[in-house]
Amino acid sequence: MSIDPTTLRTFIAAVEGRSLAQAAAREGLVTSAVSKRIAELERTLGITVLTRHNRGVEPTAAGLDLYHRALSILRQMDSLTSITEDYASDGRSKIQLVANRSAIILFLPKDIALFQSQQSHKVRIDLLEAYSGDIPRLVVEKNLDIGIYHATGPAPGVYSLPYYQDNVTLVVPNGHPLQARESVRLDDVRKYDFLGYFPRHSYESFMQLAGHSLTGPLNVRIQVSNYEARCRMIREGLGIGIMPEGIANTYLQQFGLTKIALEDSWAKRQFYLCVRDPETQRDTSRALFEFFATRTSNKKI
């Protein structure tokens, strides 16, 4: 006996819509195609599953039994299909991890390498980059295994644990009037030209975060997301910039730059780990999440 999934879905749509026409609209078919599939299903089974009348269709007792069995069959088939999301093509376990750029540059390479070195069976990690503000939503909507974001507090709708902490710092070229300062408040240096990106990625989002600490807008000359390119522009005197301290340290000597601590409270960032639901995590995903959790302890980068 050969009954394809499309026929079962069409039959389910007819039962739930109590109409061949509604089933056709739901499944993207013409009504005659739905009628033909139901007729072939009845011929294959040797029983009548739908009673036709002028108001539509009704399942027979056999049809009602088939309806519940068909739902169960399709659920099982969907669970088989989901295997492709959980495993790589070579059969290894696969974990989908989404993180912001700072996390990917600053600490994920070391932590992932250490995790992989402790595993008897290697897992494949698919690492996606996204903005922190989008990551909790992506974990829920796209059913990603683990997210890493920074925020002023845990995001709603996901289960979060604190991860690393870092600071954003002001970066100026050597010889700049601010070079001798150990720390500043951002509002004290508003008169200088700035190069974006900013924490929260756009100037508008940054102002929502830090605007309460400023008495006026910043003069943003150029927006550039690439850290190295931003440092090159700072060296050429095109403006001063704000960037994660751990990333700034990479370029200070190379480009003749100086970092200056920011005294503003928003300059300290808290990273969080998040999952959709810890109770439904797969074993491999849970192992990585728990490993990351042991690396937290509010460590600073």
Rank of each mutant, 00 (worst) to 15 (best):
A229R: 14
G133F: 02
A130R: 07
I47P: 00
L170D: 12
Q22S: 08
I12T: 01
M233A: 06
I105V: 14
L138A: 03
K191I: 07
Q22A: 12
P136N: 11
K191M: 15
S132I: 05
Q96T: 15
L114A: 07
F198I: 01
S117K: 09
A14N: 12
W266S: 04
V49E: 09
A99Q: 03
I3W: 01
K142F: 09
G237W: 00
A62D: 12
F115N: 05
M1A: 13
R55I: 13
E27W: 02
M243I: 10
T294N: 14
P5Y: 10
I146A: 12
L71K: 14
A13S: 03
L45A: 04
D264W: 15
I3N: 01
S35Y: 05
D78E: 06
S132W: 01
I135A: 06
R221V: 15
L273V: 13
I260N: 02
T51G: 11
A39M: 06
S213E: 13
R52K: 04
T7I: 03
R137V: 10
I73H: 02
Y192H: 04
S265F: 02
A33H: 09
H176W: 02
I301E: 13
T7A: 07
A99H: 05
Y203C: 00
N54S: 14
D90K: 03
L262A: 04
T169E: 06
L170C: 05
Q116L: 03
A13M: 01
A70K: 12
L20A: 03
Q116T: 08
V220E: 08
L144T: 08
L288R: 00
F255I: 04
L74W: 10
T51P: 05
T48G: 01
R43M: 07
I247N: 11
G28Y: 01
P217S: 06
E129K: 10
L74Y: 07
V30E: 10
V49Y: 13
R26F: 13
G46M: 03
D78A: 06
R282A: 08
F292G: 11
G216R: 11
F255W: 10
R230G: 14
T284L: 05
